[in-house]
Amino acid sequence: MAIDWNIVQTAIPLLARGTVVTLQISLVAGVLACIIGFLLGLAALSNVRALRWLIAAYVDFVRGTPLLIQVFLVFFALPVIGIRFDEIWAGIIALAFNTSAYIAETVRGGVGSVERGQTEAAKSIGMFRWQILTYILLPQALRPMLPPLTNELISMTKNTSLLSVISVYELTRAGQAIISVHFVPFEIYLLLALYYYALIKSLSYFSRWIESRMPVL
């Protein structure tokens, strides 16, 4: 089995376009997932029982169903009730909501793991619950939260490849397009793996760099 280097040369620039789309989707979905995830995670710590129950149900649903089905739900099922997104936004929304559930759990767990004496000390100077969260607990939870948070964003970035099934022209879809024309699955899938690997590696280095700059408490 010899590698067809000509096709590799042709493919590299073609895949670059898909890489850009994958990056864009990951970035937008990642930011959305963090915002929604933090809000949900903090709301899960509220003293309103109905709110906690609602979030627990949401997290349970997301974790209990395949991402592929969630993507189909957003892209094919929502239009039936009149909510329509193009394939990129459908993909971004599905990914963001999926990842936000995991991030919510990380935030809830991270804040919950801060020693109880911290909350008591904050109470003893008369802080309100939201102030304790914002000024005392969250800043301390951030560093221990970073590794699991990175894992969730890495999973999400890899999961963007699933969006090829709803015709989002991201990295995987771009590769498949080349394969369908030239029929060179070995070269292309190998290349795709390398592209993803490079993306994920840079993401985890970036995260470790941030972590190294955060003070150890």
């Binding site: 003293n47 911290q118 301390q140």
Partner: peptide
């Protein structure tokens, strides 16, 4: 309520055995 209690607590200072300083 929790909020009212927070306000009432402002009249009481507390020094803990284990300090409980904010490490950050």
């Amino acid at each position: 309520s929790e909020r009212q209690l927070a306000i009432q607590r402002r009249g009481i200072g507390f020094v803990f055995q284990r300090f409980n300083l904010f490490p950050h």
